[in-house]
Design a protein around this nucleic acid. Structure first.
Length: 573
RNA sequence: CGGGGCGUAGCUCAGCCUGGUAGAGCGUCAGCUUUGGGAGCUGAAAGUCGCACGUUCAAAUCGUGUCGCCCCGACCA
């Protein structure tokens, strides 16, 4: 395997933290000389970073191939018209890089490949005999991110493994989905990542269900909840709430009564002014659902989950109404909306179902209403799960545990797509009776570059990266503690040759630097094992071997050091 | 797109308030010494102070605009 010399590589380590980097993994990727920035969201992989990236890719290839998927490579540059055909141009045009070719034809850089692959299947898959099949590629994706951040975590150009399965039926598609799910579990395990699998929203992909593979990290961009008791775990966007009865704040007999609340607009202000808990208030938010105003009602201490609301309303576009709209539909300034007498479709969270004696706005400046019993005073209201789950909520699955909130980095996502794309793009097959059906699809993504950085985010210490052996740029760093000591240098080279001949990638730090510099850099770039040969240990007839992950140091006899180390490395594979 | 912060040598930063010859540490290059946890000494190279316009006798410094980077939010896979 590879035997590289530091002085012949480009490993520009940095002593100080570049100001552009905020989170540990990003700082370490820069400091260890893995990547360099070209501009926001665009990075060059330097030799060390590229080696690890290639190892992650190799693991992914092995597991995808093992799962029976077929590797292909689709164009990153695509005609815009295929996106118009699928209807997704409108949805994704804001993230796509767009340009025209010399014929002035509209082209885009692919942010994902459902359209291309489904077109391929439409042309090449004709018979149930060809199914199931699953195509995958490892390729650069382009997304004009609103805000790229944290280095490779969210970049404008990134490497993704994307796979697309085609099956004869939903039942068969479940099998493909499960195969990918299992492959993902193995892939992340082999990369040394601990992941949490959560139920997720399907977002712009569409489809029926999906799971995300999350790396738990405080720098994660996604919130998720897991149950303290059972195995339920879900993205915060998706997490359901256990249906519980609304709170009876009073006996429900008192009739609505207006109460003056001059200048008290926010939930906090009103709650404090009327000396009631925020939860007793009914927060009334006016939204525009496909352009039509609608009022969403939630307990005063809860937030609306707009994804849930959008689904409950069956809307394709949803946004909070602006002040002008709110004033015209409620007849009051912002801050005084309430369900009683409001001439709008009303949809309330289930937590309000059966509640009584709550407080809401009066649709009149400076006024609120108390003794509101929603079912009685706003009879047209419908109920749905509308709010964002939070720590402490009851688990919707087991009914026993409560939800715990965490943050995570999404490294993989598997979707059941159904026939959305196969129908619009004509990926159909003939069954054994000669009847035509759209193929049932699934799609499966892994953020390869993001996965790489996530490993570092999850595996580092104050001194640097701690690479898992499986994706470390090199397995072993060998150094002569002092380059001017001939015996050390000779022995270091000899060990390096033997270890590399045994099938491990070796980096020899042959720089004529002081020991401290070499040790610091060794910790920083974080190869799993460091072998140092120096006069001090040589005097004892030993060479020093240090394991990066544990800090464990051992002296191996010079004569057998290579063999012993090779045996250990094999054990760790 | 809204809010905030920052652009001075390869990196980290000082100088700016109060305008007057462009600075430090680290790194780089040469030499000597040193060699088991980021060495010491000597010497050297390296910056149109992001860019443009304006104010001024004079702008890194003041004003306006613009570009870029980072963070929060909105949004997004």
């Amino acid at each position: 395997m590879t035997l590289a010399r530091w002085t012949r590589q480009l490993i520009p380590t940095l002593r100080e933290v570049p100001q552009e980097a905020e989170i540990p993994s990003h700082q370490l990727m820069l400091r260890a000389g893995l990547i360099r920035k070209l501009s926001g969201g665009l990075y060059t992989f330097l030799p060390l970073g590229l080696r690890s990236l290639r190892k992650v890719e190799a693991i992914i290839r092995e597991e995808m191939d093992r799962a029976g998927a077929l590797e292909i490579l689709m164009p990153a540059l695509q005609p815009q018209e295929i996106w118009e055909e699928s209807g997704r141009f409108e949805v994704l045009k804001h993230v796509m890089f767009k340009m025209n070719d010399r014929q002035n034809r509209a082209m885009v850089l692919g942010p994902t490949h459902e359209e291309v692959v489904t077109g391929l299947a439409a042309n090449e898959i004709h018979s149930y005999r060809q199914l199931p099949c699953n195509f995958y590629q490892i390729q650069t994706k382009f997304r004009d991110e609103i805000r790229p951040r944290f280095g490779l975590m969210r970049a404008k150009e990134f490497i993704m493994k994307d796979a697309y399965s085609f099956d004869v039926s939903w039942e068969a598609a479940d099998g493909s989905y499960q195969a990918m799910y299992d492959a993902y579990v193995r892939i992340f395990e082999r990369c040394g990542l601990r992941t949490k699998i959560v139920e997720a929203d399907t977002g712009a992909m569409g489809g029926s269900s999906s799971h995300e593979f999350m790396v738990l990290a405080s720098a994660g961009e996604d919130g998720l909840v897991e149950c303290s008791h059972c195995s339920y775990a879900a993205n915060l966007e998706r997490a359901e709430l256990r249906a519980v009865a609304g709170v009876a704040w009073g006996d429900g007999e008192a009739l609505p009564e207006k109460v003056a609340t001059p200048d008290q607009r926010t939930i906090e202000e009103v709650a404090a002014f009327l000396k009631v808990p925020a939860a007793r208030l009914i927060k009334t938010l006016v939204y525009l659902a496909d352009g039509k105003p609608v009022a969403a009602l939630v307990p005063g201490d809860r937030e609306v989950n707009e994804i849930k609301l959008k689904k409950a309303l069956g809307a394709t576009e949803l946004s909070l109404a602006d002040d002008g709209v709110i004033e015209s539909v409620t007849g009051a300034p912002v801050g005084f909306a309430g369900p009683v007498g409001l001439k709008l479709p009303l949809i309330a969270d289930r937590l309000l179902e059966g509640s009584s004696d709550a407080v809401s706005g009066a649709n009149e400046a400076g006024m609120h209403v108390r003794h509101v019993t929603l079912g009685r005073d706003a009879p047209g209201v419908s109920y749905a799960d509308l709010i964002v789950a939070r720590e402490g909520d009851g688990c919707p699955r087991c009914g026993e545990g409560s939800l715990v909130e965490k943050r995570g980095i999404e490294v993989g996502h598997v979707f059941k797509l159904g026939t959305k794309y196969s129908e619009t793009l004509g990926a159909k097959y003939l069954d054994d009776g000669g009847k035509q059906h759209p193929a049932v699809m699934g799609c499966y993504g892994i953020g390869v570059t993001r996965t790489l950085q996530s490993v570092i985010e999850q595996s580092h210490d104050g001194n640097g990266i701690i690479w898992p052996l499986s994706i470390a740029p090199y397995a072993v760093e060998v150094m002569a503690v002092n380059e001017t000591h001939e015996e050390s240098v000779r022995l270091a080279n000899e060990l390096a040759e033997k270890i590399s001949a045994a099938g491990f990638d070796v980096l020899v730090d042959d720089r004529d630097e002081r020991p401290g510099v070499k040790f610091k850099d060794a910790d920083l770039i974080g190869l799993p094992v460091r072998v140092s040969v120096g006069e001090r240990s040589l005097a004892k007839g030993e060479v020093e071997v240090k394991v990066r992950a544990t800090g464990e140091t051992l002296g191996l006899p010079v004569a057998t050091a290579a063999e012993e180390l090779i045996e250990k490395l094999r054990g760790w594979m």
